[in-house]
Nucleic acid binder design. Structure first.
Lengths: 328, 328
DNA sequence: TTGAAAGCGCTAACAG
DNA sequence: CTGTTAGCGCTTTCAA
């Protein structure tokens, strides 16, 4: 690999001038031309490592997500990537597997690799950000809240839970169960609160506690909880799934029991990207994952650019895609 | 951030000794202890950028895939990540969006960031690898072939296409269509060849040409092709989908037309991770995506470690998960 | 506008 | 086993 010294020699200028050409500072037109020609001839590409060492920075941002196999997060990653790469940044995607230790490792790497900033969907509220925050790097939290005073982008979770439930009530269901994510996670709690409130308003005679289930945010979690609900002495006639994968699991179990929606009503918070169901059978409360990534990336880039306003949290509204099918 | 000089001063040793402690070369036990204590006290973490500049390397491998939103590739990414992080490497995931230009940009970054190697699922056979190969970095191709003499991991595509078709033939279908990926991609061609051979053997009277459709490897591609097939004067009674997303699209369209499988037979090459269908309705020819990632990462790590044997290509067998439902 | 020179933090000869 | 020293390739004062 050619270095700026090689280019400098060939172009008959100093290394400093070559550097300036590649950084857009003032250099006379003729020298610019000479340097460009030499660089081309030698197929020179600036060595980023050296630059990063010198400038103590790099055009890389870290993106830490809890589950790379969840389309919700990959959709968000797309949003982040589109904004970042448009601004000349590359994105390092890290999969924390919902494990705080893995999360900590990646955060560590972000620091020692001099990444410019990090977007993280925290595995839990206990996620420690002190280390990276102490280095002065901006961090934006997505999807979930943290205890730190940093920028964030979250969904209107309570509203989403309520909308999903209301969609089902309007379709004529009453005994509406809820399968949410792990108890410790705020998004899960908020969505459940929305469900509870909507159910209390629309079907006050239904005792909600026995219809509430906590699961993990994956397909198997949805399956297990749905099986439990079906085993209840008095079955629910509908269910709200707290996220996309729980929804998939719940629908799978219903299908296996011959209760294909809308026979049992189903509302899902989040999209079903690869569903093979008729689009009219299930109420989907779409969560704008891509937009979340876009906003987060924009905020991070602003902070990297020196923005020092007080921290903000953006709340993104959900969008109800109602099932056209009504309870038969 | 503390440097090795700070640690050295506090521990009363030379910077070189500190470096040695962190790189596992021989240092007396007492000095090791002193260094560790000092490092802890100063919360020292080695600066990777500096190390990378010095060693002209980094414990980072690049993973370039054409579609981050396709579960097939994210599953593979998981396999890569598990192996890599177990060996102390981090993975930079890059989404080429099937665009050769984006691919080239990421390959460029891999070089200038001194990444140790790259695993790439090439967007097309025209993908240029000369640049990165010239730097001596190992590259492993996954999923698809390249024109270069490098290691590769691919699926037994022809076999998969044949198995899918045979599954349908055994279930009693005869007029079996095929929706494959873009014509230029070798995996698509191979799978189609398997289908054609199996159909010729099992239902020789069926003219296969009019039942063959090329699509893109996404849901919309599967949808469009399935619509076309249904519009045929003589409809197919079954269809083989060339990948997971095409399968989703095809099933969606069938469902919308009231032809839920197994009314029309469906076989999919690749998994349907988030299907809400009854598991018995569709023949799935599972492609071991995770294993592909695991093998590729292992091979890459071996090459990084200096392995210079002739290049190898691993072919992974598919696994047929037959539908238990038979044509009614 | 341009060049000389000093490092960024680390590792790897080379001596001792 | 340990310390000294010379860079890796780049950016950035500081002078000219």
């Amino acid at each position: 690999m050619a270095t700026i010294y090689d280019v400098a020699r060939l172009a008959q200028v100093s290394p400093a001038t070559v550097s300036r050409v590649f950084n857009g500072t003032s250099v006379s037109a003729e020298k610019v031309a000479a340097v460009r020609r030499a660089a081309e001839q030698l197929r020179f590409t600036p060595n980023r490592t050296a630059r990063n060492l010198r400038t103590q920075s790099s055009e890389v941002i870290g993106l830490v997500i809890p589950d790379i196999e969840n389309p919700y997060f990959t959709e968000m990653a797309r949003g982040v990537e589109d904004v970042a790469s448009g601004a000349g940044y590359s994105v390092v995607l890290c999969n924390s597997d919902s494990q705080p230790e893995k999360e900590a490792t990646y955060l560590q790497i972000a620091v020692s690799e001099h990444m410019s900033g990090v977007i993280i969907a925290p595995a839990s509220e206990r996620t420690r950000l002190d280390g990276i925050l102490d280095t002065g790097r901006p961090v934006v939290a997505v999807d979930r809240h943290t205890v730190y005073d940093i920028d964030g982008v979250v969904m209107a979770n309570r509203e989403a839970g309520a909308s999903a439930t209301e969609g089902l009530l309007e379709a004529g269901y009453r005994r509406i169960a809820y399968i949410g994510g792990p108890e410790g996670i705020d998004t899960a709690a908020e969505r459940a609160a929305g469900w509870r409130a909507a159910l209390a308003a629309g079907a006050p005679d239904i005792a909600s506690d026995e219809l509430l289930r906590f699961a993990n945010f994956r397909v198997d979690g949805g399956r297990a909880a749905m099986e439990e609900l079906l085993a209840l002495p008095e079955r629910p006639d509908a269910v709200v799934a707290g996220n996309n994968l729980i929804g998939v699991g719940a629908i799978q179990v219903l299908t296996e029991h011959g209760l294909t929606p809308p026979e049992v009503g189903v509302a899902v918070i989040g999209s079903l990207p690869f569903t093979t169901l008729s689009p009219t059978a299930v109420t989907v409360v779409r969560l704008p994952a891509r937009e979340m990534g876009v906003s987060a990336a924009r905020m991070l880039l602003e902070r990297i650019g020196g923005d020092s306003r007080p921290s903000r949290t953006v709340v993104l509204p959900s969008e109800v895609l109602p099932a056209s099918a009504v309870r038969s």
